[in-house]
Amino acid sequence: MFPAPFDYHRPGSLDETLVLLAQYGGDARVLAGGQSLIPAMRFRLARPAVLVDINQLDELAYVREADGMLAIGALARDAALERSSLIESSYPLLFDTSAVVADPVVRQMGTVVGSLCHNDPSGDWSVTALASRAQIVVRGSTGTRVVPIDEFLVDSFSTAVAEGEIALEVRFPSPPPRTSGSYQKIERKVGDFATSAAAAQITLGDDGTVAQIGIAIGAAGPTATRVADAESALRGIKPTKDAIRAAADAARKIADPVADPRGSVEFKKDMAGVLVGRALLAAFERLGVGGLR
């Protein structure tokens, strides 16, 4: 199966990219890793008239820490995180996620920012981005904006990136000391989108209480969903079995999945709870907090 014909542009600079995007507006799609876009075009589910290929913009292929943030550029591949010792040592939630997105070959081309822009309701990165309170740097011909992830994920397959704009970077706040996290995913096999997914990131205070917390679930609504009730219930307390159970129940309550071949609504709602429980447990255990099983 082959894509329908399109016009192809490969700009040599970001400025040139922005000019093209401004010129073609809604007719254009940005091509980065292409791992979702190209199959969609082969099935002719996507028929962009113009592709703007940014793969030549090597300056966007970065993963770096600066100003208290981990910045991941629009051309950084999933695999770059999976193989980064910085990510492995300091960003356990991201490291977990990077190992289960799609499959190991797709991850060598697929990008983190591209996945966020695709905003598949069952995608992985949006869940992790919510739990770790990421921000997206979006640029258009009129300037740059920094969009919090909660505002970025508008609806399924829809984001805050407007026509003529490009998402340049995703930023994850660098975790303070005593921070850990975990990503839990149920998939039918490697390469599948999540049947259910949960991400948790926790920072403990000096007294052992939860200072900062992020909890999100995937495949449980039109976009990845923050489990705000569970976050506020856990914030400021010392973790207990009951508190984790309550957080899991909060996830079950808020989960609003659709039935599909991956599972029924009932199953996915329950899995949202199970996985939130497991993500919290794993994160606490990584912080040396035991006795929660």
């Binding site: 199966m1 292409g34 199959p39 070959v105």
Partner: peptide, 28 residues
């Protein structure tokens, strides 16, 4: 396949990436 699932099309790009060549345009 047409869905980037099977991997029988994998080639090596720039000596460092294994890529599914049916999910990459020749122009890329």
């Amino acid at each position: 396949c047409d869905t980037s699932s099977c991997g029988v099309c994998v080639v090596v790009l720039d000596g460092e990436k294994a890529v599914k060549s049916c999910t990459m345009l020749a122009v890329m």
